[in-house]
Design a protein around this nucleic acid. Structure first.
Lengths: 141, 141
DNA sequence: ACCACATTTAACGTTAACGTCAAGGTAAAC
DNA sequence: GTTTACCTTGACGTTAACGTTAAATGTGGT
C-alpha cells in the first residue's frame, strides 16, 4: 500500500496518501479515482517517481464527490461546484469568488431539495398502493 | 395522431390510446415507450393492423414508471414492482399475491426513504459550506 | 541489490437508457 | 382512393461511469 509519507511538515497528522489508501478508505476502486481526475474533478500532486500523492484536501474533495454521486449527481454537475471550491486556496479568496461559491452552493441546495420532493411524491404514491393492499387484505379474511 | 377509438365498450371514458398520444401527454418520446415494452415493463394490446393500443391501465403503469425514473430508479428495479402489480387483474387476486405485492411496495418505500436520507445528508453537508461562505462574506466588509 | 506488491499509462470492453435513421405498413381525412 | 400523418420493426449510434487487461515503472523492506 506504499503508505506515502513525504518529508517536510511532520506535525503528527498524515500529510499525503497513495491512491490505494484512499480507494481502500473510501470503498471505491483506484480506477474510479483516476477517472475523476481524468474528468477534472481532482488534480493530485506527484512524487518524484510520478505517482499520485493525495493531500487531506484531495481526500475531502473525494468525500464530497462521493456524497454527490450517491445522491445521483453526474460528474458534470459536480465539476462546477468543485471547480469553484478549488478556486479558494483557503479563506483568502476574493469577495467575488466567495459570493460565486455561495451562490453555487445555494443553487445546489435547491437542486437537492427538488430531488427530495420528487422522492416524496413517489413516496406518497407508494403509500396509496400500500394502503390499498392493506385494505384488500383486511377485507379478505 | 390516429386517436384510437375502438368499438366495444363506449361509456364516455376513453378506452384506448395510440403510442403518440401517450408520448405527448407524458412528455416522452415514442421510442421511450417502446423501450419500456422491450424491457418488459408494459405489454399493450394491438389493433387489427398490429398497432399498439394502450388502455387507461397501461397509462397508469407508465405514469408510475416515470415517477420511478425521475426518482432515479433503474428499469430492472421497476420490473419487480410492476410485474407483481400486473399479476392482479383487479382486486380479485389471491391473498398470497396481495401479500407479496404489499411486501414489495413496503420494501420500495423503505428504499425511497433511504434515498431521501442520502439526500438529506448531502443537504446538511451543503448547509455547512453555505454557512462557512456566509460567515466569510460577513467578515469581509 | 533484490523481491513482492503498488502504481502508471494506454486502450479496449460493458451496461443502461434511450436517439436516430431507414424502409415499409396503417389510419383517418378529403 | 389517394394523400397525409402516424406507426412498425430492425439496427446501428451515443453518453456516462466505470471495469479489465497489459506492459512497464516505482516503492518499501530486508
Amino acid at each position: 500500500m506504499s503508505t506515502i509519507q513525504r518529508a517536510g511538515a511532520n506535525g503528527r497528522e498524515k500529510e499525503a496518501f497513495s491512491i490505494g489508501e484512499l480507494a481502500n478508505e473510501l470503498n471505491i476502486t483506484t480506477r474510479t479515482i483516476r477517472y475523476y481526475e481524468e474528468r477534472g474533478l481532482i488534480s493530485p500532486a506527484r512524487t518524484g517517481g510520478r505517482q499520485r500523492a493525495y493531500t487531506r484536501r484531495d481526500r475531502g474533495h473525494l468525500k464530497l464527490i462521493l456524497k454527490h454521486r450517491d445522491a445521483g449527481f453526474s460528474i458534470e454537475e459536480m465539476k462546477e461546484l468543485l471547480g469553484i471550491y478549488d478556486a479558494q486556496p483557503n479563506r483568502a479568496g476574493e469577495r467575488r469568488q466567495m459570493q460565486r461559491f455561495r451562490d453555487l452552493v445555494q443553487a445546489r441546495l435547491d437542486e437537492v431539495d427538488g430531488r427530495i420532493e420528487t422522492l416524496r411524491a413517489l413516496r406518497r404514491e407508494l403509500g396509496k398502493r400500500l394502503d390499498y393492499a392493506e385494505r384488500e387484505l383486511k377485507a379478505m379474511d
